[in-house]
Amino acid sequence: MAPKTGEMLHLRGNALSKGEPVALPLTQSSMYHLPGTPDGQASYGRVDNPTWVHLEHVLSHLEDAPCLSFPSGMAAISAALFATVKAGSRLLIPSDGYYVTRLLADRFLSRLGVIVEERPTIAFAEGGFDGFDVVFAESPSNPGLDMIDLTEVADRVRAAGGITIADNTTMTPLGQRPLDLGIDVVVSSDTKAMGGHSDMLMGHVASRNGDIMERVGEWRKISGSIPGPHEAWLLHRGLETLDVRFDRMCSSAEVLAERLAAHPAVKQVRYPGLADDPSHKLAQEQTTRFGFLLSLTLNSEDQAEAFINNCPLLRPATSFGGVHSSAERRARWGDDVDPAFIRLSVGCEPVEELWQAIEASLNAL
């Protein structure tokens, strides 16, 4: 079921007493007045913060599941993995997903005795899931935008006795709902579209499995992987405009994908909303929108750099999901893609103005 975003906007307001502020207060404190025994009261800044509580109330509404916030998307991924694997566990991750997840698995989890295996997204279900304790999925993959059937994966992993984790950063809960599809745990980098303004780092973990969430909470408290209250406040404010931003971004991406696919300077476009895209049929069944990310491949690395750097309405920057459209050549980070492959994150600019700038930059190549 899609979240009721109108209700979300009034979650705080409908619980206010007369004279309380409508805007969420920022609690910037490491200490709390705590005479006597704690008795379940806020005790210390590494454990409790009222600003987190209100933020997580909104996140839980969006995910329709208990949520905990973290200081980055990777902090959320780390928490989900450290809460579910141990020495001897077998972990499956996508070979073409976010590269830092692979680095975490290779440089840290594997050295602690976790057996890590990788598969490309398009062949993720091949070979089955028997013997895997945790299966980490990413759909659409970042940056390739390949998709997998999350319901099928969740069902097969559960039947084999494993746990599934899905990174839903590229779609947000408004575009795709992995928990409703049977996935056990969702992680997200809220640095991206959830916050939406490129001014903070945040992430969250959501699950309807109480035991897993208890472990995730224990990891956060003991490891100290906690969000700053100001960042939590910024994310809470960003979530209030997520619905309108996400709608604009997805609608514009659909328009741009069609036009880019027809431009003679573009070799290939990947966007799940295109009828001939390999992910289109699955996206129609699994997502409520086709997303705001697309990719285009030009004829050379030099052309890709010139296109990005000479377009005044594209920020040449890593990350994605902000109100400003941005683009980058992903091969510069070592992704296994064509040197002229560009990940384009569509922002909130008026679509015709944005297209004119993009088209002019392509025409000048």
Rank of each mutant, 00 (worst) to 15 (best):
residue 216 V to C: 06
residue 204 H to E: 07
residue 171 M to R: 02
residue 204 H to G: 11
residue 180 D to H: 01
residue 165 I to T: 00
residue 192 K to I: 04
residue 154 A to H: 09
residue 160 A to C: 15
residue 157 V to K: 06
residue 218 E to H: 05
residue 154 A to K: 02
residue 204 H to I: 05
residue 222 I to K: 02
residue 152 E to N: 12
residue 200 M to F: 12
residue 195 G to H: 14
residue 218 E to F: 09
residue 214 E to P: 08
residue 181 L to E: 05
residue 178 P to C: 08
residue 164 T to N: 12
residue 176 Q to K: 10
residue 152 E to Y: 09
residue 224 G to N: 13
residue 227 P to R: 03
residue 193 A to S: 04
residue 187 V to D: 08
residue 173 P to L: 07
residue 210 G to F: 00
residue 230 H to N: 06
residue 165 I to R: 12
residue 148 I to P: 08
residue 152 E to Q: 10
residue 226 I to F: 05
residue 187 V to E: 07
residue 207 S to V: 13
residue 196 G to T: 09
residue 178 P to E: 01
residue 215 R to E: 07
residue 219 W to S: 00
residue 213 M to E: 14
residue 199 D to K: 06
residue 196 G to W: 07
residue 192 K to S: 09
residue 157 V to E: 03
residue 229 P to D: 03
residue 195 G to C: 09
residue 220 R to C: 12
residue 205 V to G: 07
residue 177 R to V: 06
residue 148 I to A: 13
residue 212 I to D: 00
residue 185 V to A: 01
residue 161 G to N: 01
residue 211 D to H: 04
residue 148 I to N: 09
residue 202 M to I: 01
residue 164 T to R: 06
residue 219 W to T: 11
residue 155 D to V: 02
residue 153 V to N: 06
residue 213 M to C: 04
residue 151 T to C: 13
residue 209 N to A: 14
residue 195 G to K: 07
residue 206 A to W: 00
residue 225 S to G: 04
residue 200 M to I: 15
residue 173 P to D: 09
residue 185 V to H: 03
residue 229 P to M: 05
residue 207 S to P: 08
residue 179 L to P: 10
residue 186 V to P: 11
residue 149 D to Y: 05
residue 185 V to M: 10
residue 177 R to N: 09
residue 149 D to M: 05
residue 153 V to L: 15
residue 224 G to W: 10
residue 177 R to I: 10
residue 187 V to K: 05
residue 190 D to Q: 14
residue 180 D to K: 00
residue 215 R to V: 02
residue 196 G to I: 14
residue 185 V to Y: 00
residue 222 I to T: 15
residue 181 L to Q: 07
residue 227 P to D: 01
residue 205 V to P: 04
residue 196 G to V: 13
residue 205 V to C: 13
residue 187 V to Q: 04
residue 207 S to H: 11
residue 158 R to I: 05
residue 220 R to F: 04
residue 203 G to Q: 15
residue 172 T to N: 03
residue 218 E to P: 00
residue 147 M to W: 12
residue 215 R to D: 00
residue 199 D to P: 13
residue 187 V to S: 08
residue 187 V to N: 14
residue 217 G to Y: 01
residue 195 G to L: 03
residue 187 V to M: 13
residue 178 P to W: 04
residue 220 R to T: 06
residue 212 I to G: 03
residue 146 D to R: 12
residue 188 S to I: 14
residue 183 I to D: 10
residue 188 S to A: 15
residue 175 G to Q: 02
residue 190 D to F: 05
residue 160 A to Q: 04
residue 216 V to A: 12
residue 184 D to F: 02
residue 210 G to E: 13
residue 149 D to G: 02
residue 205 V to W: 13
residue 214 E to T: 14
residue 192 K to R: 15
residue 177 R to H: 09
residue 201 L to Q: 06
residue 184 D to R: 13
